[in-house]
């Protein structure tokens, strides 16, 4: 749905994106992560045909960004980082304006349907300036969905929203993905990205890492671990655990047992079975997944380390 090959963009001397390559599949929620100035907004603006790339081949929904920007624009819904609505106009006037630009058929009907869906139908005739940030963001989402885009580009969609509005926004993003829309989002909220995204790309002007959170965890943080609490850590029980296929290491720490495993989905049931067979009793068993925040810090730290050692 989105193909990015060798995207490069510089503003004068400052490089914003350097040879970025990734692809986003249909129906996927794809996260773009990076520190400030990493090139996330630039990448989104290039995908939305707002600014041209210096080089690279970018295809969105089958259309080349450089060759056929109008077709790309018509199939993309953009939610910029900053709320972009005309404050003096009413909600309906704002939406009708964009509906006309996108040549939406039966615009009033479509707008009412979306306003109902986002539960803001009673605010249609209010000036945007009178709305809270959360409501403005909902209006912005309606605006982005007016023309039924197949691809949604969301730049910090929950930034500055109160927890309730952010929750509404997250469930909406999941709904949109389940309808088959492809979503690329950038966010500073790593917990949110971990909850929402099927895959993530970590960038810092260039691509640092790409994959699902689990894949990246294994790659950068080592194998996943299982935390096990037994009624009594007898030798034969520990030996039984160690003999399970997929167990890499076993470590006792503060009364708990931490087990590095290859594939938690398969190994955890096997460990449970081995413990019971050896006569042990499990009080608690859980898979310890590293937080994306930890992972992100590691990837960025590794990159900084590489840069300083190569420099």
């Amino acid at each position: 749905m989105i193909e990015v090959h060798g995207l490069t963009k510089a503003y004068g001397e400052k490089v914003a994106a350097q040879d970025l390559s990734f692809s986003v599949r249909r129906g996927e929620i794809f996260g773009l992560l990076g520190p400030n100035g990493a090139g996330k907004t630039t990448t989104i603006r290039i995908l939305a045909c707002i600014i041209p790339p210096d080089s690279g081949r970018i295809v969105v929904n089958g259309h080349e960004v450089v060759e056929d920007p109008l077709s790309v624009k018509a199939s993309v819904g953009l939610l910029p980082e900053r709320i972009s609505l005309y404050e003096r106009l009413t909600v309906m006037e704002n939406l009708l304006f964009f509906a006309r630009l996108y040549e939406v058929e039966e615009p009033v009907l479509k707008i009412k349907e979306l306003l109902n869906k986002l539960e803001i139908q009673d605010r249609a005739e209010e000036p945007v300036s009178k709305l809270s940030k959360g409501l403005k963001q909902r209006v912005s989402i309606v605006r982005a969905l007016l023309h039924d885009p197949l691809v949604l580009l969301l730049d910090e969609p929950t930034s500055g929203l109160d927890p309730m509005s952010a929750g509404v926004m997250r469930s909406l993003i999941q709904d949109l993905s389940s309808q088959g829309r492809t979503i690329l989002l950038s966010s500073h909220n790593l917990w949110e990205v971990q909850q929402l995204c099927h895959r993530v790309a970590m960038i810092n002007t260039r691509l640092l890492a790409l994959g699902s959170v689990d894949e990246l965890s294994t790659k950068f943080m080592g194998p996943p671990r299982v935390r096990l609490l037994l009624d009594e850590a007898r030798k034969e029980v520990l030996e039984a655990i160690q003999s399970v296929y997929g167990v890499i290491t076993l470590e006792r720490r503060d009364g708990e047992i931490l087990i590095e495993v290859m594939d938690p989905e398969r190994t955890v049931p096997a460990i449970s079975e081995a413990v019971v067979r050896a006569g042990g009793r499990i009080l608690e068993i859980s898979v310890v997944r590293p937080e994306l925040e930890e992972l992100f810090a590691r990837v960025v730290r590794d990159e900084v380390g590489q840069d300083s050692s190569s420099g």
């Binding site: 707002i50 953009l78 972009s84 005309y86």
Partner: peptide, 14 residues
């Protein structure tokens, strides 16, 4: 200045 230029440029207008 009002932050609305981005969306105007993202709309399918030549």
């Amino acid at each position: 200045e009002r932050g609305t230029l981005e969306l105007l440029l993202a709309a399918p207008l030549d």
